[in-house]
Amino acid sequence: MTAATPSVCQGKPVAGRLQLPFVQRLDFERLIEKYAVWVVPGAYVAWLADTRRDPFERQPGETRAIAACRAIVAAKIGNTVSVPAELIQL
């Protein structure tokens, strides 16, 4: 999946993209400061973020908060994460 691929298609999540519905409730500015997340507007996606200033590690997001959270998860856990079945809504 490319960085320009949206994570939601016609209201339904796209397989393989981390969905973060709780992000709007968080004070993500504190997370951005704590993890030194670099967040900028993207050319082909709304926002790009990463914690290592590495162009190959940038994470896309529809909002600044979502891009920042994806960058933090990728830096701390990796690009592939396991999610318990009870947290997955189909």
Rank of each mutant, 00 (worst) to 15 (best):
P13L: 03
W47S: 05
L87P: 04
Q10R: 13
A71K: 01
Q89V: 12
E62S: 08
W47M: 12
R52A: 13
L87N: 13
G42P: 15
L87E: 15
G78P: 04
V23H: 00
R17L: 01
L90T: 10
L87W: 08
G61Q: 04
R70A: 03
A68V: 07
N79G: 09
V81M: 09
A74I: 05
V73T: 09
S7G: 14
T51Y: 05
M1R: 12
A74C: 06
V23P: 01
P41Q: 15
L26S: 04
P41C: 12
L48R: 02
D54Y: 07
Q19D: 13
I77V: 12
V8P: 01
I32M: 10
W47C: 08
T5H: 07
F22A: 03
P55D: 15
Y35S: 02
P21W: 05
Q10S: 15
T63H: 04
S7L: 06
L31T: 04
Q89D: 09
G11C: 05
R52Q: 11
S7I: 04
R53C: 12
P13I: 01
L26P: 01
A4I: 03
W38Q: 13
T63A: 09
W47K: 03
V23E: 04
V73Y: 03
R64M: 05
P55A: 11
Q19F: 05
Q10W: 04
G16Q: 06
A49R: 00
L26I: 03
V81Y: 06
F22S: 00
A85F: 06
I66H: 02
V39W: 02
A43N: 07
Y44C: 13
A4F: 02
P13F: 02
K34Y: 07
A36V: 06
G61N: 08
R30S: 14
L90Y: 08
E33C: 09
R64Q: 10
A75H: 11
Q24M: 10
T2P: 13
T51N: 14
L87S: 15
E33Y: 09
F56K: 14
A36C: 09
L87M: 13
K34W: 06
A85S: 14
W38K: 13
V37R: 08
V39Y: 01
E57D: 15
K34A: 13
P6K: 10
Q24K: 10
C69Y: 00
A65P: 03
V73L: 06
E62D: 08
R30Q: 12
P55W: 06
Q59N: 09
A85M: 10
T51I: 07
I88G: 04
A36T: 13
V83R: 09
I32R: 15
L20T: 03
R64W: 00
V81D: 08
E29K: 11
F56S: 15
G61E: 03
A85E: 13
K76C: 14
A15V: 08
R70P: 02
P6H: 10
V40L: 07
T2G: 15
E29P: 01
F56P: 01
K34H: 15
A75K: 11
V83F: 05
P41K: 14
I32S: 11
F28M: 04
L90R: 12
E62Y: 01
A71R: 00
N79R: 08
L26K: 07
A46W: 02
A68K: 04
T80S: 07
G16P: 02
L31V: 07
A75T: 14
S82T: 14
